[in-house]
Nucleic acid binder design. Structure first.
Lengths: 211, 211
DNA sequence: TTCATTATTTAACAAATGTAAAAGGATTCT
DNA sequence: AGAATCCTTTTACATTTGTTAAATAATGAA
């Protein structure tokens, strides 16, 4: 090993490249679950991705901006939230190996009243949606990939409606424990309460009776 | 006019063809809002469409079947509903000029616990989804068309979650009046109540105070 | 570690919603 | 028209959830 490459291996640049490749690799494993991609398509996608490292409580996207980025959570947890009469309401959480995007803004090109915030230190891959949508024309595989990704998101959202519409607060809490038991350990209860559509006090009461 | 064509014009066959073309035309006007289609794509789509005339309370799709049809409501109203602990719960309504499909079954290919029922006499166009998905390979325009249609459905569903999650019953009722004032006139209140996530009694109370 | 801050639980009371049953209206069918 | 059925409202009471405030627990920064 030359002296030069020794210094390179210890350099910031190396660390950055290493992280970038490692993180992006996880994204492509995620993509592969949905759709086979040609080398050219993969390369085109890589060029519109960038890696972001964020700490708890930091904001990924602010309220009021039109969403033009799709995020992949490689590590950590993020949430979408908004304010209703001054109180902070969590719309959804995204854990590692999942996509997070404010679709109501992304697909309508209107400003979003929602923000994305980091709940647990996170490594995120940002996908430039403006460039992505242009790739749809040249790479039908990419259009199909994201069609399938968002179809899955659509299904999850429909199932969530069923949960909110006619289940009691306790049923919703128990369902959450079932589906993602980690959520309770990793997310502050104040966020979980509004996600379930109830107040923190009600959540505390439910936890007291269920325990 | 020959005697033959006179009889043809009065024939069942003529009525059927006339209705079919008229109805399908409306569907293609709907499609045009989303995506330009080539003549070949339009023709391919027409071949997988059929027209159905249904009366109030008739069932379009039954509980337990895997959804392999996408419907377009040309006239009338349909609803998706399911049973929770024996009570009938309306998940959504579809009015004229809109698509109705049980996406949680269509996109997962699992049996649906939900049914589609006619709320007001309806003229429906059924699109064979199995054949449609095959057309995606040969006609990227068609894939794009339905991608956009379902993206819009996704956005509507996300907005609905916001409505259910942290609005009071009264707010949800008032929002419904705002968005579709016809709904109240054309849909029985018992269906509207469960759609809003409340009981019929609560809806009556709200109506008494709001009036 | 210690202090300050933030998160969670508990309590007491108010408001909203659910349940069951009955009464009144509207609609449909014969 | 008349009977039967279905839909909607009303009532009384039970239960759930919200609100406010205080107490306790946990966390993070100096």
């Amino acid at each position: 090993m030359s002296l030069l490459s020794f210094y390179f291996l210890r350099s910031e640049l190396f660390n950055f490249r290493f992280h970038y490749l490692y993180k992006v690799n996880k994204l492509f494993i995620f993509f592969a679950q949905f759709q086979l991609l040609s080398n050219e398509a993969e390369k085109a996608l890589q060029e519109i991705c960038s890696v972001i490292f964020l700490k708890k409580n930091e904001e990924l996207q602010a309220i009021g901006h039109t969403c033009r980025t799709i995020y992949f959570v490689e590590k950590g947890i993020a949430r979408i939230y908004y304010y209703k009469d001054g109180t902070d309401i969590t719309e959804s959480f995204s854990f590692e190996n999942s996509i997070i995007a404010r679709v109501e803004s992304l697909f309508t090109e209107k400003p979003s009243r929602k923000a994305i915030q980091i709940v647990e230190d996170a490594d995120i891959i940002a996908i430039n949606a403006t460039k992505l949508f242009k790739l749809y024309d040249t790479h039908p595989q990419i259009e199909r990939l994201f069609r399938k990704i968002f179809e899955k998101g659509y299904v999850e959202t429909v199932n969530r409606i069923e949960n909110l519409q006619f289940h009691t607060a306790e049923e919703r809490y128990l369902a959450l424990i079932q589906e993602s038991p980690n959520a309770l350990r990793r997310i502050p209860l104040k966020y979980i309460a509004s996600y379930l559509g109830i107040t923190q006090v009600t959540l505390s009461r439910i936890r007291a009776t269920v325990k």
